[in-house]
Design a protein around this nucleic acid. Structure first.
Lengths: 182, 182
DNA sequence: ACCTGAACACCGTTCAAGT
DNA sequence: ACCTGAACACCGTTCAAGT
């Protein structure tokens, strides 16, 4: 049933996931869904959780700590862009952290492996995730709001993503201090 | 009328802005609203545009180019946090760029003043905005989804914001090249 | 244990009709 | 020019009732 809901989102978009449409797809009544799941929010949480498992199978193959951290960050970016519909759904419903949890844990492990203390790794994780999330917002917005096929920065955005995320990573990998004057 | 809509959003949250509730607030029928404005989306656009004008009166007083760029970036952050309700509304409806347009233009001017070519300033603007937006997402999510009053990072997030945004700014102020190996 | 029908309280939007 | 009443096509959710 949550698999059917996931299919609905993937094939017809996040807004297609209504109780009535899902019920129609399954050949039952809307009230039937409420017997299996408590509410629409719970349904969405389950859909997002299912997708988070499906997309967690990415391996970091880079060799240096710095490139491994960057690779883990890019996995989050790649997974989100490969599954735009569910990413948008999670984003709209505030369940992004559930969707990315496995990939976030992988990133956190790389930060620990890079020699950061737990507290500093948490800070770095938070900062990197915020930066990645910001670029994701940018990338996903440009497809939904701009109707025609003339998307200016489709080739440039990944370059800006790399440069910016790398800068944030380096800031947290190197200095334990506050950002000072130049 | 759009002023009344803005008041509604500020006092009762983004979800309170429905045609029926706004009509009730104004003492008219929902259909009356449709005479003045084409649709709910147009209404929201006007509300966001109004707020964008109200919050555009911030001056950059820092002295060096680097600190002036940072100050312009922090203005976007500050304005968003001071007007959480409309920021969330704009975010949900994909009108964030309208809301921040004046502040974005101010940031772009600082990037030009810092000596960047138009093309490089556009790249830097995009990257900085994405990073700021990511932290904003983070800050606004922690208040809506976490019900109780125990918000862990309310004092730490600004520190991470400063450090990360500064790192991105420095990356684009200094090097015109791709992000290379260390 | 699992499913249905009917209903409640909402939405955005339209259209003919009033002044 | 400006406003209303009634209606359409949707929502999420609940509750008594069926098997």
């Amino acid at each position: 049933m949550v698999a059917a809901a996931l299919d609905l989102v993937v094939s017809e978009g996040p807004s297609a996931l209504t109780m009535r449409r899902l019920a129609g797809q399954l050949g039952v009544t809307t009230t039937t869904i409420y017997w299996h799941v408590g509410s629409r929010d719970e349904l969405i949480t389950e859909v997002v959780r299912l997708q988070s498992i499906l997309q967690a199978t990415r391996k970091v193959t880079a060799r240096t700590p710095r490139t491994r951290v960057m690779a883990a960050a890019r996995h989050i970016w790649d997974a989100a862009l490969e599954n735009r519909a569910i990413t948008s759904l999670a984003h709209q419903t505030g369940t992004t952290s559930i969707l990315e949890l496995p990939l976030e844990e992988a990133l956190l492990r790389e930060l620990h492996a890079a020699g950061l203390s737990p507290a500093r790794a948490d800070d770095a994780l938070r900062a990197i995730l915020a930066t990645v999330g910001g670029f994701l917002l940018n990338a996903l917005r440009d497809e939904s709001s701009i109707p025609p096929e003339q998307r200016r920065p489709s080739t440039e955005l990944p370059r800006l993503f790399d440069k910016s995320v790398q800068a944030v990573i380096d800031a947290f990998l190197s200095s334990p201090t506050r950002s000072g004057e130049s």
